[in-house]
Write a protein that binds this DNA or RNA. Structure first.
Lengths: 139, 139
DNA sequence: TACTTATTGAAATTGATTTTCATTATCAAT
DNA sequence: ATTGATAATGAAAATCAATTTCAATAAGTA
């Protein structure tokens, strides 16, 4: 996974640096969406000299490369999650933030119909479920 | 409509002021979601001495009273729209921002099933469609 | 190894939002 | 109507996230 990400960076002419590797490590190992300042704090534990700006810039790149996806939550709208190819709908734990991509669902037709009924030309949709993950239900 | 809103303010022990009336007018007459600074600019056209702080505070109250709903869009996550009772799903124009509540849709069961499949306890869901409104399709 | 150029991080800047506080205005009780 | 308690207002200061600037540094190719 990490190899894929670093290869994609290189492919775009970007350089592999210790900072970028550390940031990527944090993002790939997190099961919840993180905002730049959270990534900054986590990454600095192993890389204290890291600057915030680098985190902002790196995360912006990763989003443009299609490796990260922006996730909106009650606790903030600047959170990013590793993108799973082909999946855009998330189930998010309201307690710990754990995010899971779910599948086996096709609402496209229903959405188109609604748009038509309102004379809109459908371009996109946004669906997100939230609740308690298995672990947080037990606490 | 405005009477209902002002009555609700009064009911909660809040006072009716010229500023609040002006802000409520703007929000009730807008067919798109607005953020505090947009409301500030629009309201100042008829009420130049208005302060930004008052707009922030008033909108926060209106949200707590259940009269305004927060709407997240590509163009910002601090936008507020008058809440239509019982409706939470929106169709939003990507060009002009026009927002329409739609109905005739019940995904509750499908959503519950997805949550169950992932061992999550469903608490909430968030669905928003976006596209071009009738007017913007013609431009 | 040297050199080109992308990357970095500190500091300054911006822009939105919040807090503070003295002044003003609302509204209930006279 | 007048008064008075107190809610509301708005200017200014403070805060906080995010962006820009720029000189120093490091990556990776030649």
């Amino acid at each position: 996974m990490k190899e894929t990400w670093m290869a994609k960076l290189k492919e775009k002419g970007m350089r592999i640096t210790a900072q970028r590797e550390a940031i990527v490590d944090i993002l790939l190992n997190s099961e919840k969406a993180l905002d730049p300042l959270e990534v900054y704090d986590l990454t600095r534990q192993s890389h204290p000299s890291l600057g915030v700006v680098t985190v902002y810039r790196t995360m912006e790149c990763l989003e443009h490369l299609g490796l990260l996806q922006k996730v909106h939550q009650a606790c903030g709208c600047n959170k990013f999650l590793k993108l799973k190819e082909g999946h855009h709908h998330l189930l998010i734990c309201t307690n710990c933030g754990k995010a899971v991509y779910f599948e086996g669902l096709n609402f496209e037709n229903a959405f188109s119909e609604i748009a038509e009924n309102n004379n809109f030309l459908l371009q996109d949709h946004w669906l997100q479920l939230s609740g308690l993950c298995p672990r947080c239900q037990k606490i």
